[in-house]
Each structure stands twice: as C-alpha cells, then as structure tokens.
Simulated scan of single mutants.
Amino acid sequence: MLKTENLYRIEIIKPCTVSGILNGLFGGFYPFAEEDEYIKKNWGTIPAGTKGWVVKKWRKMYFSADENQPEIKLFTPTDQPYVLIPYSKIKDAYKKI
C-alpha cells in the first residue's frame, strides 16, 4: 500500500480553478446545486485563504485541503471532503506556512 507523505503546509493566496478535475471525478455532478448562489457561482474554485498540505502519493504531488474549513464544499463533494488536487493546479497560488 502506498502511503501519503505530507511535505509542507500551505495557504492558497489566490483562487485556483479546479472544475475540470471535479467534473471528471464526479461525472459533472454538482452536489450543491440546491445551495446558495455564492456556492453555485464559485463551484470548482479553491478560494484564497484555504489551508492544507502539499502531499506526495503515487510518486506525484497533490494539494490536500484541511477538512474543517467553511468553503471546502466549493471544491469537494459533501460525502468526501478528502480530495487530492494535482499540484499543477495550485503551483503558483500558495505560500508555505
């Protein structure tokens, strides 16, 4: 079994669009369609201020957001807050903390 290795903590400093990845993962299903307009408008975007880890798994780097953040549902499904976002989507939009 391959282990996930936490490399360093980060904070997103500018919004990152990940909607193309989410559509592939969830088949274009938007689990928050009934929610407010802010969520509908920003679905698929990691907002500035989001914190998490850059992790290494399967010999590749990913972003893993902390679960208990108010806007995590903009880029994760309700029943699965642990989603690995490819590092390439956030590489120029974070700072180490």
Rank of each mutant, 00 (worst) to 15 (best):
P31E: 15
T17N: 15
L25R: 08
M1S: 15
T78A: 12
N6C: 10
F32C: 11
Y94R: 07
T17H: 13
F26K: 11
K95P: 00
P15T: 15
F29R: 11
T50E: 04
K14W: 00
D92K: 12
Y94K: 11
L74N: 08
F29E: 11
V54I: 15
E5A: 08
I85S: 03
K96M: 06
K91Y: 04
W53V: 07
L74C: 09
F26V: 08
E5Y: 10
E37P: 00
R59I: 01
Y30H: 12
F63V: 10
K41F: 04
Q80Y: 00
K41G: 01
L84N: 06
E34D: 09
D66M: 08
L7P: 04
I13G: 07
P47V: 14
E67C: 13
P47L: 14
S19R: 15
Y94I: 13
A48P: 10
Y87A: 08
G52C: 07
I85D: 05
T50P: 06
D36L: 05
T50G: 04
Y30W: 09
P81N: 09
T45I: 15
G49H: 08
Q69K: 04
Y82S: 05
L2H: 04
R59M: 12
W43V: 08
N42C: 06
T4L: 09
P15D: 15
N6A: 10
D92L: 06
P70A: 13
V54E: 12
F75Y: 14
N23R: 14
I13C: 14
T4Q: 07
Y94W: 02
P86E: 03
G24V: 10
S64Y: 08
K56P: 00
G20A: 10
K60W: 06
Y8E: 14
Y62R: 03
K51V: 06
L74A: 04
L2F: 03
Q69T: 01
T76A: 13
I12S: 11
L22S: 09
K51D: 02
T76H: 04
W53P: 10
P77A: 12
N23H: 15
K91W: 00
I10V: 15
I46D: 00
L84V: 02
I90W: 03
V55D: 01
K3Y: 05
K89T: 03
I13D: 14
P47W: 09
P47N: 11
S19E: 15
Y94T: 12
T4A: 08
K14Q: 15
D92R: 10
K60S: 14
T76E: 01
S64G: 03
I85W: 00
L7Q: 13
Y94P: 07
E34S: 09
K3C: 05
P47Q: 14
S88M: 05
K60P: 09
A65H: 03
V54W: 04
S88G: 01
V83I: 13
Y62T: 02
E35K: 03
L25F: 06
L25V: 12
L25C: 08
K3M: 06
K73T: 02
T45N: 14
S88P: 00
I46P: 09
K56N: 07
Y94H: 05
Y38V: 13
P70M: 10
W58L: 03
C16Y: 07
